[in-house]
């Protein structure tokens, strides 16, 4: 399974990762090797096997509908690179 430079560009954008153009060829090579490695799974017959969604033997726990959290604006914003008037601030988004 070979992965080309264009695909690297595409998935890097999907993942919002800036990858230098100079890096793309070597990355494509490394990723292709990994894909070849994982392609071994094709040898396993999985007909009729349910995919595993969880290893936990317990049903999904549910919590009561009670307000137990929030009211911590300062903590929420404390690590923000930029904030003002209670908001997170980011470069302008154009819809």
């Amino acid at each position: 399974m070979a992965l080309d430079k264009a695909t690297v560009t595409k998935i890097a954008h999907l993942a919002r990762l800036r990858v230098a153009d100079s890096e793309k060829d070597s990355l494509a090579g490394e990723l292709s090797n990994i894909l070849t490695f994982i392609a071994q799974l094709d040898q396993v017959d999985t007909t009729g096997v349910e995919p595993m969604t969880s290893v936990v033997a317990m049903p999904l726990p549910r919590r009561p509908d009670v307000v137990t959290d929030g009211h911590q604006q300062a903590d929420v914003l404390k690590n923000a690179p930029e904030s003002t008037a209670g908001f997170f601030v980011i470069p302008k988004v154009i819809e």
Partner: peptide, 18 residues
């Protein structure tokens, strides 16, 4: 999460870390 759902509160005041 356990944060409240009220409309029109102070920004980021009804936010859990979740």
């Amino acid at each position: 999460s356990g944060a409240a759902t009220d409309f029109g509160s102070e920004p980021n005041s009804q936010v859990s870390l979740v």
